[in-house]
């Protein structure tokens, strides 16, 4: 009896934690399940009959694949731009002392603390008053803007965790500033930059609220889902959702395994 009480005392927090994880994964399981569903009617969300047709006929619903492609493109361009802008800023903040540091930090923090609703409507107000045609370009502008801050924070953290003496050691060993950057700083910061880029891509690809205000007639994947919700969601949407989940998970596992293999040799 005593032993059981002890065990419960030690494990109840873990048990609650695992239940919360189940809650987090429940919808994922449903999405994966529904990706194999042949719905009974267009507006039905319930499981009806097993089929692999949604996976084989992914581009069946009009415009779905085009929307996914458009999101991927915007995501890619926004990621490249935001990663470059953000990485430069992170280097400035982590490696230099200068006047206006606090203001810069605030400028980077604010977009992360502002609801998307406010940023979306602000940009819309700007674009309409400037007479800019809403569409691909305005979406891209918006996505770069809200990705930059996350890139700065991620890369800056990596830079802060890096021993500044490594760069001094490189200089001491005859590396010019350019060589120091190329041979020491960049390889060591790269994991942070890659992580920031992945984060930026997923933020951009999945953004709905800001995009919704600034897209005009351009349809990204989230916009497609939103629109389809009124007419009835084609089950292929769940295929895209499941595939996104699987790809991202594989990416994370791959980097994890690589890290583990490197770590295993230490022991």
């Amino acid at each position: 009896m005593h032993r059981i009480r002890r065990w419960v005392a030690d494990h109840w927090v873990l048990a609650i934690g695992l239940m919360v994880l189940l809650y987090l994964f429940l919808p994922i399981a449903v999405v994966a399940g529904l990706s194999f569903n042949r719905p009974s009617s267009r507006l039905s969300y319930d499981f009806n009959e097993f089929t692999t047709e949604n996976w084989t006929n992914l581009c069946g619903p009009a415009d779905l694949c085009a929307a996914v492609g458009r999101s991927a493109w915007i995501g890619l361009l926004a990621t490249v731009a935001a990663t470059m802008l953000g990485t430069l800023m992170a280097f400035a903040l982590a490696r230099h002392r200068f006047r206006g540091r606090a203001a810069t930090n605030l400028l980077i923090f604010l977009p992360m603390a502002t609801p998307e609703l406010v940023m979306g409507t602000s940009l819309l107000a700007l674009f309409t008053s400037a007479g800019l045609q809403l569409g691909f370009v305005t979406i891209l502008i918006a996505h770069i803007m809200f990705c930059v801050s996350f890139v700065v924070v991620t890369v800056k953290a990596r830079l802060a965790g890096m021993d500044a003496r490594l760069e001094e050691a490189a200089m001491d060993l005859y590396a010019t500033p350019a060589q120091t950057f190329r041979r020491v700083t960049l390889p060591l910061v790269l994991p942070g930059i890659v992580a920031a880029a992945l984060l930026a891509f997923s933020l951009s690809f999945d953004d709905f609220i800001i995009t919704n205000f600034n897209s005009g007639n351009t349809v990204t994947f989230p916009m497609y889902v939103w629109g389809a919700n009124q007419r009835g969601i084609p089950p292929q949407v769940n295929v895209v959702g499941t595939a996104m989940f699987a790809v991202a998970l594989l990416l994370v596992l791959a980097t994890n395994v690589r890290g583990r293999r490197r770590g295993a040799r230490v022991a």
Binding site: R165, L166, A169, L188
Partner: peptide, 9 residues
């Protein structure tokens, strides 16, 4: 260097 500053990569 103190604590060596070996290049970890």
């Amino acid at each position: 260097f103190q604590s060596y500053a070996l290049f970890p990569h």
